[in-house]
Design a protein around this nucleic acid. Sequence first.
DNA 1: AGCTAATTCGTAAACGTTTACGAATGGCTG
DNA 2: CAGCCATTCGTAAACGTTTACGAATTAGCT
Lengths: 334, 334
Amino acid sequence: MAVTIKDLAKIAGVSYATVSRALNDHPEVSIETKEQIKKIARENGYSPNEIARGLVKKNTNTLGLLVPDISNPYFPEVAKGVEDRANREGYNIFLCNTGWNTEKEIQYIKTLRDKRVAGIIIAPAASDTYKKVKSLELDNPVVYIGSRSDDRSMSFVIIDNEKASSMATEYLIELGHTDIAFIGGNENSVANEERFNGYRNALKIHGLEREVHIVKGSSFNRESGFNLMSASIKEGRIPHAVVCANDIIALGVIEALESNFYNVPGDVSVVGFDDIAYASLPKINLTTVAQPKYDMGSMAADIVFRKIGARQSGAGNHIVLQPALIKRGTCRKR
Amino acid sequence: MAVTIKDLAKIAGVSYATVSRALNDHPEVSIETKEQIKKIARENGYSPNEIARGLVKKNTNTLGLLVPDISNPYFPEVAKGVEDRANREGYNIFLCNTGWNTEKEIQYIKTLRDKRVAGIIIAPAASDTYKKVKSLELDNPVVYIGSRSDDRSMSFVIIDNEKASSMATEYLIELGHTDIAFIGGNENSVANEERFNGYRNALKIHGLEREVHIVKGSSFNRESGFNLMSASIKEGRIPHAVVCANDIIALGVIEALESNFYNVPGDVSVVGFDDIAYASLPKINLTTVAQPKYDMGSMAADIVFRKIGARQSGAGNHIVLQPALIKRGTCRKR
DNA sequence: AGCTAATTCGTAAACGTTTACGAATGGCTG
DNA sequence: CAGCCATTCGTAAACGTTTACGAATTAGCT
C-alpha cells in the first residue's frame, strides 16, 4: 500500500540504496540526485517505515513509562518531564497505567521488552516490583522513579521520602501536636513504607513513640483516605493531626473530618504529600511536601539516555532530590 | 546480543521456520517438538522481536493518542479509557502531549505515521488541526475525541458541547441571572467555540443577547481563568454569573472572585465544564457539566479497532454522547 | 597517455520474523 | 505392495530498511 524506497528508486531510475542514502543525507551521493530524490519522495508522499529501519538499526526511538495511576495528578507531571526530555532526543513514549498491580506491571514490561524499547522508566506499584523486574533480566536500561530498592545496581531518581515525611511530622510536633496519626496508601508500596518510617522516626526522636497512631493504608486515593479517616472517627480516635501518604488521600481525610464536623485545621491539622496542583487552591490550601515532579521525570529520562549511550550497563545511577515542606493552611498550632 | 529464533533452532536441531511455528502454536508441528522448543525458548530467555514480526505482519499493535495537556485531569481519564480498551486487544499506546500546539501535533502525527501505528486518536488542539491532519493523507485510521469538524468523513466521539453549554447557561438563567459572562479557553479550540456558541444561543433564546458579557479566552488553565476574571473585576465588570469553558478555568475564576472578596455563589455564580475529579471536593463543590470521559476514550479506541478490522476506510463514525449538568454548590438563585 | 585517487552509484547481505511451497516420512486403504 | 493422504518439517522468499563492498566513471597529475 504505502510507497516504499523501492518505488522511489524505480521512479528516480536509481537503485534503492541510493534512495536510502539520499534521504539520509549521506555524503556519497551527489547534490543533484539528492535533490531529485527528495523531490520525488515529497511528491509521492513517502514516509519512511520506522519499524523496518528500527530492525536494522536496532533502535526504536521509544521509551516505556509505567505509572501506577495516571489519574493522580502527580504522575501526569512526571510523565510530562519524561516526554519532553524524550522528545528532545526524538523519542516517543509508551504510557502504561499499571493500576498499582504488579501483575499488570510485569505484563507491560514484557511487551515493552518485546517491542524493543530503548529504556523503561518505572514508577513502581509495589515493593516486589523490583525483584520481579530483576528476574526478567532485561537488556533494556531501567530507571525507577519515586522510590528505590536497596539493590544499588538499579538506577533511580527519588526524593528522600523518609526525610520528607520526618520533616512534615516534626513540623506538626513543633506546632504542639502529640497525638499524630499516619494515613497511608497502598501498603506494599515502597514510598508508602518510607513515608511511614519517616513519620514514626520523627515521633520516636521526640519521645512520642507511644502516641503513634497508625491507620493502615489501603489505596492512594480519595476514597481510601475518606474511609480510613471516617472509620477512625467512628472508633472515637480523633488525632491532633494526621500526616497523609499522599495529597489525594489528604483530601479524602479532610473530607471525612469536615463531614463529621471537625474543623481543619481548627480541630485537626492535616499535611499531605506531593503538592499536586490542586493543593494550592485557596479553598484547599493544603500543607504538603513538594517533589520536583517534572524534573524527576526528565532526569529519569536523562539517565536512560546516558545508559543508552554508554554501551555497558554500568553501575546504577542514583539521584535523590530535596523535598520542600510547603506550609499552607491545613495545619495550626495546638 | 539477544537470542533469536535461529539460535533456538540451532539448539533444538530444527529449522527456524519450525521454531517460529512452534512458538506461534501452529497446528502443523508435532506436540512434542512444540513442547521441546518452548522449553528451550524459556530456558534461553527468548523474547520475540515484535518489531521484526511487525515488519512482516504489517501490524505494530500500537495506537497513538494525542492530548493537548495531560495535566488537565480530564485527559488522564480519557487516556485510561483508551488504554484499557487498547489493552484488551493487546495494543499499547503512544502518549503524546501536544501542549495546545498544532505544530507539535503534526510533528507527532508524522512520527506516529512513520512508526506505523495502527490508529491515531486525537484530542485536537485547535480548529485547524483537522485540515492539517487531512492534508497529511494518512493511511492510519484517525478518530477525534472531544470535538469534531464539519467534515463528516472524519470519525469522532464527543458530547454535544453546544447543547451542554446551553444547558448550563439556561440553568443560570432559570436561577434569575441576567448578566452572565463566558470565560473561555484557547480561542482557536473547537470545543471552546462550541461552548461559547451554546452560551450565546441560550442568551439569545431568552432575550438576553444584549447582556452578553464575553471575556475572551486565552488558555484552558487556572492562571488564565484567574487572570481574565481579575481583569474583568478590575474593569468593574462583575457579572451575575459566569460559565467557564473548563473546570480548571472555573477554579481560577473562583480564585479571582474570592481573592477580591466576592463570594461564590453569594455574589457570583460559577459553572464549569468537564466534571474533573476535584470538582466534587466539598470545599470546591463546583457546579459543572459532566462528560463520560473514560467511556469516550474507550469508545474512540473501539472505533479505531473497528476501522482496522474493516479493510476499507469507510465512512466516518460519529458518536455523540449526552452531557449531564451536575448541580452542586457554586450557583445560587438571584 | 597512463596511473592514481576521488566521486558516485549499484549489488548484496543483513536485521528477525512469518509463511507459501515443496519434500520427506509414515500409515492406511484397496 | 502400489498408491494416496496426512503429518511434519525444511527451503526460500518476503517485509522495508541500512550499509559494507566493489565497480564504474571522472578528474587530476606526471
